[in-house]
């Protein structure tokens, strides 16, 4: 293998025996990089029982997949995974290492970057090319602005926001290839004791036509009643919330929408007092129609809303409910 750094290496994630959606989204980003700066695209997968997923990935993408099979990762462990990545990545001559801005990617990427002497750009949602140079965009300030970043080292670790890139629908001509390697590394500093399964999904959210969601902007717990009254005027509706409300115990976690909560796509999503941070919007941007109420005219939620209501929700919702009652 040539020693010039000429590859984009995607760290693949599995979901059961299948390739996780984020991994194919990363392929879209890798191809954008490749268009601007010719390079190879490779996948690296690290875990236990990786073969089935590795074959699935190679078949679906027609590309080279390196799978490091580690008995020691029967239970996933970050420290062990890092050591394995550090051992196997340099041989794949990466210029870019791509991961998802997922709990796993966020855990690994900054540490891996330090170990590789690499740059690190997290939460990327767009790539543009200026005079042949790559510019990565990532949101900041709750989505109100974006920061443009450029690589400055021979290797850069990049994490992409889930949903920001669309998995390519390509017809695959090649079979791809799988190379299985094994590793017996184990970190002595951390031990995985087990996995605690998620509380049962709130079925109400996936079945609802209309979701009325409350954010920190509702201000007081008492205002939850207002949100419930608003939901009650829509048939087949459910109430949901942003993370801070669940953190405060005002609503149960199964009703949380976003990166670490439910992903929903109702016909109507009615956001009340939600600023539109990307960790929230990844969970609801697939909704059919989005109405947002916030008193901050610059709130990022207005960038993805179909109807923007800049107002105080304590005034607006009662006014809206009064009209519904008039009928």
């Amino acid at each position: 293998m040539k020693k010039t750094r000429d590859a984009v290496v995607i760290i693949a994630e599995a979901q059961g025996d299948e390739t996780a959606p984020i991994t194919l989204e990363l392929l879209a980003l890798a191809r954008e990089i490749q268009l601007a700066q010719p390079c190879k695209i490779r996948f690296l997968m690290v875990g236990h029982g990786t073969e089935a997923t590795a074959r699935d990935l190679a078949r679906r993408t027609g590309r080279e997949v390196v799978a490091v099979e580690a008995e020691t990762l029967r239970d996933y462990n970050t420290e062990t995974c890092l050591e394995i990545l550090q051992e196997h990545l340099p041989g794949l001559s990466p210029r870019f290492v791509l991961m998802g801005q997922t709990p796993r990617g966020m855990d690994l990427a900054p540490r891996l970057a330090v170990r590789l002497g690499a740059g690190c750009i997290t939460g990327v949602d767009a790539l543009c090319v200026e005079e042949g140079e790559l510019r990565f965009s990532r949101t900041a300030f709750g989505g109100k602005i974006s920061l443009q970043m450029a690589p400055a080292r021979s290797i850069t670790v990049v994490t992409a926001t889930p949903g920001a890139f669309t998995a390519p629908q390509e017809s695959v001509s090649s079979q791809g290839s799988v190379r299985l390697v094994s590793s017996a590394r184990r970190s002595a500093r951390s031990r995985t004791l087990g996995i605690i399964e998620a509380p049962r999904q709130e079925r109400g959210l996936s079945e609802a036509d209309v979701i009325v969601a409350a954010g920190r902007g509702i201000g007081t717990r008492e205002n939850l009643a207002l949100i419930e009254r608003l939901a009650s005027v829509f048939p087949r509706s459910a109430v949901a919330a942003s993370r801070p409300l669940c953190d405060q115990g005002w609503m149960d976690y199964p009703r949380q929408v976003g990166l670490t909560g439910a992903t929903v796509s109702p016909k109507l999503y009615f956001a009340c007092g939600i600023s539109g941070a990307v960790q929230h919007t990844v969970g609801m941007q697939g909704s059919g129609f989005i109405v947002a109420v916030s008193r901050d005219p610059h709130a990022a939620i207005f960038r993805i809303a179909d109807v923007c209501v800049v107002d105080d929700l304590e005034a607006f919702i009662p006014a809206f409910l009064a009209l519904c009652r008039e009928e």
Partner: peptide
């Protein structure tokens, strides 16, 4: 290790 170029307004979706 990476270069910060500029701040910009994100596009409306």
């Amino acid at each position: 290790r990476e270069q910060f170029l500029r701040a910009a307004l994100p596009p409306a979706v």
